[in-house]
């Protein structure tokens, strides 16, 4: 049993091994015949070069992820509150119609999206991409918060209502204080998704200095001499923030993962 577990662990870690040994090599050390060997001399050259090339894009990604996540988490929290505690006729249907939006292939809205963003002057930069992620993030954030708030006993809200708290009062005094875990799950989910996203990023943002990190990493692969050590270092840098989130907050990360699949 342990043998099987360890065998799979090794399989899962092979790419990590490859990224690390390659990225700590200098360009002259990267040769195909010694691809699997440890670097004969550990150097940070590749990381320096990758950081040099990708730093602006890393910053772009942060500038994208932070506002997009915060806004979509706030919207999701309010929507989830309404859809779990203030249900009205047709609210379940609206919820289901919303959920459909998180499953569609985004290719099917891409052409109008590009034309729309162009016509309102948001095409080409990070603000447009933020808007896109906020809107297409509504379904999943709403879903997670709605499921979370469904667990909150209605009696608590009723008690608050008797004390005279209205719609926002109940939200502010009852719901919001107990929402921290929900926010953590949603924020982690959105951060990972938006950081890792590629299709919107590659079609909506233009200019080497404006694109987020995923696009820049892909472009790194397409240029001149194939500097595998720099590419691997770039891949490592791209993966690092979400990996850190995963390692530090793994429990919530998994909860977000499962929320995407568990029925609404």
């Amino acid at each position: 049993m342990y043998a099987t577990l360890i065998f799979f662990a090794i399989l899962f870690l092979i790419p990590v091994y490859m990224v690390l040994v390659t990225s700590f090599k200098s360009f002259s050390q990267v040769s195909l015949s010694t691809m699997w060997n440890f670097p004969t001399e550990v150097t940070l050259d590749a990381f320096k070069e990758a950081l040099d090339k990708l730093l602006p894009n890393l910053l772009n990604s942060f500038a994208l992820v932070v506002p997009a996540t915060v806004i979509s988490a706030m919207i999701g929290s309010l929507n989830g509150y309404v859809l779990s505690k203030w249900k009205f006729r047709g609210s379940n249907l609206i919820f289901t119609l919303m959920l459909f939006g998180m499953f569609i292939p985004y290719q099917s809205i891409l052409i109008p999206l590009v034309q729309f963003l162009g016509s309102v002057g948001l095409y080409g930069g990070i603000p447009g991409l933020i808007l896109v992620h906020v809107i297409y993030g509504i379904p999943i954030t709403t879903l997670i918060f709605r499921n979370y708030y469904t667990e909150v006993p209605t009696e608590m809200l009723e008690a608050a209502a008797i004390d005279g708290a209205g719609f926002f009062g109940q939200y502010q005094h009852i719901i919001l204080p107990i929402s921290i875990p929900g926010f953590v799950v949603v924020i982690i989910w959105q951060v990972t998704q938006i950081w890792n996203e590629f299709l919107f990023a590659v079609t909506i943002v233009t200019g080497a200095d404006k694109v987020p990190i995923t696009v820049a990493l892909q472009n790194l692969a397409g240029s001149q001499v194939v500097e595998w050590n720099v590419q691997m270092a770039g891949a490592f840098l791209t993966a690092l923030p979400t990996l850190l989130v995963y390692i530090l907050l793994g429990r919530y990360f998994i909860r977000g993962l499962l929320a995407g699949s568990v029925k609404g």
Partner: peptide
């Protein structure tokens, strides 16, 4: 936790 782009490059 990784991007498909990272997976692809690696």
């Amino acid at each position: 936790a990784l991007s498909f782009v990272v997976t692809g490059v690696v």
